[in-house]
């Protein structure tokens, strides 16, 4: 059964850009809750994308992958992180970022442009589908989120975003990659998320950050 998806290219392109938009939205957020919700939405968008790819190529692996992604990244991870936000209300907002958010969004766009320029000149000539520049840029935006933020959970979101980018790229250029591998990767990411949540809870337990303590971690 090969199901012809109407407007396949447009839908894929639109979903890709929506993923980028959700990423930019996260760059522009100084609150933690919306960032976590945005990562959930982003994961669900990628799930939708994989489902479309499945309908297009009729590769069952992609369907399983979509199910795993949707359930784990779209629902479980965000719930785990939101659970932690509930317990640390004082960490809801990242101080110091709220004034910078518009410039962070624009930085994100500049990163997109630079990332695309690099990608186009270095990687793209060897691949057939140009859409893979989106996951590449997504990866860079994930890094940007990690670098510019101090809040543990936002950084975790940046990490998941990176993984999303990889997943996206994998689905586009290597759809036949072993399902077992993908499944294990998802489990691994879950491990990182859980560890991250535990550690960030512990970090929050020390409310004051004394420079003298962190002095030991320099040099």
């Amino acid at each position: 059964m090969v199901f012809v998806v109407p407007f396949y290219e447009e839908i894929v392109g639109f979903l890709g850009i929506s993923v980028l938009l959700s990423s930019l939205y996260m760059q522009g957020q100084s609150f933690v809750d919306p960032t976590i919700r945005a990562i959930a939405i982003q994961s669900l968008l990628i799930t939708a994308l994989i489902v479309i790819l499945f309908l297009h190529t009729d590769d069952l692996n992609l369907l399983y992958l979509a199910i795993i992604t949707g359930v784990m990244r779209g629902i479980v991870f965000p719930l785990v992180m939101l659970y932690q936000v509930k317990h640390f209300r004082h960490k809801l907002r990242e101080t110091g970022t709220s004034q910078k958010t518009p410039s962070l969004v624009l930085t994100g766009i500049i990163i997109i442009i630079i990332g695309y320029a690099i990608f186009k000149s270095v990687v793209l000539p060897y691949f057939s589908n140009p859409e893979i520049s989106i996951p590449f840029v997504l990866l860079l935006l994930g890094f940007l989120l990690i670098i510019t933020r101090k809040n543990s959970l936002t950084q975790m979101c940046g990490y998941i975003q990176e993984e999303n980018g990889i997943l996206y790229m994998g689905a586009l250029i290597a759809p036949g990659i072993q399902l077992l591998t993908e499944f294990a990767v998802v489990l691994d990411v879950m491990g990182v998320v859980i560890i991250g949540v535990i550690l960030s809870a512990q970090r929050d337990a020390f409310k004051t950050l004394e420079p003298s303590d962190l002095d030991q971690l320099s040099g």
Partner: peptide, 22 residues
């Protein structure tokens, strides 16, 4: 305080980096 911070840095930097090797 420091050991938790170190563990956090380790988790974050290493996981973020390993994504590239994926």
């Amino acid at each position: 305080r420091t050991s938790i911070e170190a563990a956090w840095r380790y988790t974050l930097i290493v996981s973020a980096g390993l994504v590239i090797s994926l």
